[in-house]
């Protein structure tokens, strides 16, 4: 199995993320199960808070806000195990039920640091 990052970009609204519909929320909760049914596996998942909460460091300069301000902003990501790109794309489509875009990219490294 190969590992892919699935990056979920969502249309940002003033009320995001609280205005995500209950169905949308439910779909997210069920996603690992749906993916497992189709022979893949979610290894890890991350959900970001809204871009306004971000702080950016560039060189010595610390500024308010995200690095890149876009209408469709990175909202979440997960690490997926799939047989190949076609399989990964089929699985990632299950996550693409939001108003937005999903990027699938192969990983060259993924590590969870255990607490010592």
């Amino acid at each position: 199995m190969a590992q892919y990052a699935v990056l979920i970009f969502e249309q940002m609204t003033p009320g995001w993320p609280n205005d995500i519909s209950p169905e949308g929320m439910q779909a997210r909760i069920e996603l690992p199960e749906r993916i497992a049914e189709q022979g893949g596996r979610i290894v890890a998942g991350i959900a970001w808070d809204e871009p306004g909460t971000a702080t950016t460091i560039r060189g010595d300069l610390v500024t308010d806000g995200p690095f890149i301000e876009t209408k469709e902003a990175l909202a979440g990501a997960f690490v997926l195990e799939a047989r190949d790109l076609d399989h990964a794309l089929a699985l990632a489509k299950l996550a693409a039920n939001v108003h937005g875009t999903v990027e699938v990219r192969p990983l060259i490294g993924f590590e969870i640091v255990e607490a010592s």
């Binding site: 190969a2 892919y4 190949d84 790109l85």
Partner: peptide, 8 residues
């Protein structure tokens, strides 16, 4: 190769 595009 990197993204494992299958020959399917």
């Amino acid at each position: 190769t990197a993204a494992r595009i299958p020959y399917a």
